[in-house]
Design a protein around this nucleic acid. Structure first.
Lengths: 208, 208
DNA sequence: ATATTGCGGAGCGCAGCGCTCCGTTAAGCT
DNA sequence: AGCTTAACGGAGCGCTGCGCTCCGCAATAT
């Protein structure tokens, strides 16, 4: 073994598992078999279940991490001087690490307090990012922050069939098209009502 | 019974089954249980399996119908005088009846000769529709007809969780954004290479 | 040498699927 | 009216594939 001892291997396994779980769940859907994650991580089932007592626990940990990454992306976007580029950065980052792919899990696992807290903070920062773009006049003013969130979700949905590099390429192209469509002022008004924050939050269960 | 006799009921059941199968498969994914279709159609399992000897046979029939509808939409778009509105019509129709939701079935069922024929014709008409929009200068010239096809596919992917009307509303809004992004000339060039027709066709298996 | 820790993976019990089979119902026929 | 028969609904069979447990073994620590 590379560094030293059993504890080092355990630590490496832990990371490999998280990486593998993210990869498998976001590309194959959250109902992929646990054994697929163990195989992807190059680890036995025993090692997996020693760290996470159940599949749900693994999913919770994964969601929390995804939320934290999303929060970081939003902050990075806000740190960017250009309001438009900051927003675009946030969206592209969300699609790149497929944050939205974990949304289907809504309602199937229990949401911990910590998850609620991080989600709320991420939502607030994202809202500021969107508001700044609105004020700078670089984002069409009929889209809301929930439209943005659901755009990311839409684009991080797992692709069907066997994984192919072409799929990712096309996704990048379509995302670029969508981003162009987001820039002010928008050729045509958006149809229907904007989605309500209550509905959006209720998908995850009752608030704490 | 409304019209008359057992044969009338049989005919109505046939239609109800096709409607139900389309509804269930496109919203829940093609691996939804057959029993869900029977229930949605208000019909027993026996009646379903008397018409389609297997789930695959039902899927083939469904795909063929979806392809025919797509072909009709493309022709309707071409019949429209305005090149842009014709194309937009085609895209919106495709998303509305979720043609692309059946794409994940690629590779899991055998593709009949008739399906190949209809798919080819639909592709040709769609190509003409796109070419006309390009020539009229109303469609950014770095998108290909495959980008359009995959845009439709992306937007007709089933939504996660329980069906909610809000999801459809948001999809309409995001589609409007994407359509705005498609109009010439496009603020930024599209990244990467356009997808190759060979890859696109190969997803369905080997050509006849 | 011995004890201890973490490892991989075979296999258990079960949920949920595709599909079959059969008792029941009601239209068509004489 | 009675009989035949076509079409019906749905319980249940066999099986696949899942989450999870358990145990023999290899690598370290003493």
């Amino acid at each position: 073994m590379s560094t030293r001892g059993r504890q080092a291997e355990a630590a490496r396994n832990d990371l490999a598992l998280l990486r593998a779980a993210h990869e498998v769940f976001t590309t194959q859907g959250f109902d992929a078999p646990v054994s697929a994650i163990a195989k992807e991580a190059g680890v036995g089932m025993g090692s997996l279940y020693r760290r996470y007592r159940t599949k749900e626990e693994l999913l919770q940990r994964l969601c929390l991490i995804a939320m934290e990454r999303s929060l970081e992306s939003a902050e990075a976007g806000l740190a960017h001087a250009d309001p438009w580029e900051g927003l675009a950065l946030f969206v592209r980052a969300g699609v790149a690490d497929r944050s939205g792919a974990l949304a289907p899990v809504a309602g199937t696992i229990e949401v911990t307090d910590e998850m609620w807290r991080v989600a709320r903070r991420a939502g607030e920062v994202a809202a500021r990012l969107v508001a700044r773009a609105h004020e700078a006049g670089v984002l069409r003013n009929d889209v809301t922050r929930l439209d943005i969130a659901l755009l990311i979700e839409q684009f991080s949905r797992p692709a069907p069939g066997p994984p192919a590099p072409e799929h990712d390429q096309v996704k990048q192209r379509l995302l670029a098209v969508a981003l162009d469509g987001l820039r002010a002022p928008g050729a045509t008004g958006l149809p229907g009502e904007p989605p309500s924050p209550e509905w959006y939050e209720r998908r995850w269960g009752q608030a704490p």
